[in-house]
Simulated scan of single mutants.
Amino acid sequence: MMRRTGKTFFILTVCAVFLASCAVTKKQQQTASKPAKPQEEKMEFIDGIAISPDAKSSVHQYKGRNTQTKNNSTANSLEAAESWQFKYAQLLDVPVENVGNARLFTFIEDWWGAPYRLGGNSKTGIDCSNFVNTLLGAVFQMSIAGNSIQLYNKVKRLRNRNELQLGDLVFFAINRSKRISHVGIYLENDRFVHASSSSGVVISDLKEPYWKRYYAGAGRL
């Protein structure tokens, strides 16, 4: 009876160990056969910066309202521009690179603010027609003389203001008789330079109500 009991105990022990090892082996096999859960990819956007998990660096892709792509040639021309170009670009309301006639704008700068004086012909006092004659001679090498009415009779009339080009003459009839009484030289973008009776040599705008009211025509020499 003792031998059977011992033999039975030994057989049960062996079976228990075998079952336990099978359970462990099965668990390991299930664990090995189950595919690994992939790591979730994360994409985060912070102020327009996109960051991916496998990226080595962040790439900024923000384009705001004031973001502009500069043209290298434009940037270079701005760097090379002189102070007078910035001044007259602002007065004419045109890009700086459009202001390139150094002879013309140096002349205007030299005479800027010279007071008006009827019949005058110097920087201490000059009238509109003498200023036009002086500028045409110095800048465009044109030998012209005469008052505003005489100049008006010499030019080839322009039918439309859209035809105006640099150096054309613009005329005004300011007096009550509606005769030509004032003249200036057209520059660009509706701006003209002249010797004003109130401000001296200055640049004005043809679209200003005063000049628009008295504008009488334009012509080319």
Rank of each mutant, 00 (worst) to 15 (best):
K156M: 02
A195Q: 02
V17P: 00
F107R: 06
G6C: 13
A138T: 04
K207A: 11
S198C: 01
C128A: 04
L206D: 05
V99C: 09
E44K: 13
S33V: 07
A23F: 08
L166T: 13
G48H: 03
F10S: 14
F107K: 04
E79F: 10
L118R: 14
D190C: 12
D205S: 12
I51Y: 02
A16Q: 11
Q29A: 10
A50I: 10
C22D: 13
D190I: 04
V17R: 03
I11W: 10
W112H: 15
G146S: 08
D110I: 05
V139H: 02
V202I: 14
L92R: 02
N153I: 07
V139A: 02
N160W: 08
S148C: 02
T134I: 01
G120A: 04
D168E: 07
N153H: 14
N98L: 12
V96M: 13
F131N: 03
I174Q: 13
G120F: 00
L158G: 01
K207S: 14
L158S: 01
S73T: 12
E79T: 15
Q165E: 06
P35E: 06
Q29E: 14
D93N: 15
K7A: 12
V202Q: 11
S73D: 13
S33Q: 14
G146E: 05
T74F: 13
E188R: 07
R161T: 11
D47T: 10
Y88R: 04
N147G: 07
K207M: 06
N147D: 11
V24C: 07
M43A: 08
V17A: 12
I108E: 01
N98W: 08
C128N: 03
L91E: 15
G200M: 05
G217S: 06
Y214L: 01
R65L: 10
A216S: 08
V193M: 02
A81I: 06
I180G: 06
A81K: 00
